[in-house]
Design a protein around this nucleic acid. Structure first.
Length: 257
DNA sequence: ATGGTCGGCAACCGA
């Protein structure tokens, strides 16, 4: 069994103990992390050597930052999109545990009238070009991360109120569909058709987790060869009970490989 | 109820 997880940690250093403990309890073969918020020179890697994880990462000061942890050797590592701005702290691709993993932290978009929103939409188109150039859909490819999209009404707590938000918007959902059409299956949705399963609860909303006022923004997408072997995909709310929770929860997928 | 709370980093930006 190969177990793969994705987790937006909102600062790896602030939540180092949480991530460290979570790895030891859950022992995923691969963990993809977003929003590490740490420059490469300060990446806290030594702690993970002792518990049997290899890791690759790309960060910057204050914002963004991605990493992949794996219990097996990691090869064919690349960062960023194909053309400028490549956004290296938002994309890491690598080969490990018999799969190609692409870990993305997609721009949030700020507001529908912001240039950042147009940049977000273009990012999806550029990501499709990345997949077209680097892989084939018959290969075992996993696309994981904080995609900053709740694809459908069942993926947000109040679709009537939230429609039009940069993370719940027909334009963004269409952009996601277009990338998925390259050859990805939404592995969580493949296993669970129900509303109310989220991976993000806004810090700024009081008791959002208690009332389950959340969004499904984090995803594990797999090509057909991996979808056929995916036995489970589920949200783990464990770290939300920790003393300093992230506003995201880990998402886990299990494969017979 | 158009708010609220985090993290980074030293004033506000991003989410």
């Amino acid at each position: 069994m190969v177990k793969v997880a994705t987790f937006n940690v909102n600062s790896l250093r602030a939540r180092l103990d949480i991530v460290f403990d979570w790895l030891q309890v859950n022992r995923p073969d691969i963990l993809a992390v977003q929003e590490t918020k740490v420059q490469d020179a300060d990446f806290p890697g030594a702690d993970f050597d002792d518990i049997g994880y290899r890791y690759v990462f790309r960060g910057q000061k204050s914002y963004n930052g991605v990493a992949v942890f794996s219990r097996s050797a990691i090869s064919h590592v690349r960062f960023g999109l194909l053309d400028e701005p490549r956004d290296e702290p938002r994309l890491v691709a690598a080969q490990t545990c018999g799969v190609h993993i692409v870990n993305t932290y997609i721009p949030q978009g700020d507001s529908p009238i912001s240039p950042k929103y147009a940049y977000k939409l273009a990012w999806f188109a550029r990501l499709r070009e990345f997949f077209e150039a680097c892989f084939r859909p018959d290969q075992p490819v996993l696309w994981v991360g904080d995609l900053n999209v709740a694809p459908e009404a069942i993926d947000v707590y109040d679709p009537v109120q939230l429609i039009g938000h940069v993370c719940f918007n027909p334009e963004v959902s269409a952009a996601l569909v277009d990338v998925r059409a390259w050859g990805f299956v939404d592995l969580f949705r493949m296993h669970c058709k129900l509303a109310g399963h989220y991976t993000f609860w806004d810090y700024r909303m009081r008791d959002a987790l208690r009332h389950n006022r959340g969004w499904r923004l984090d995803h594990i997408m797999g090509t057909q060869p991996l979808a056929e072997r995916c036995r489970a995909c589920y949200v783990d709310k464990g770290p939300r009970a920790a003393e300093r929770p992230s506003d995201h929860a880990p998402l886990i997928a299990e494969f017979d490989l």
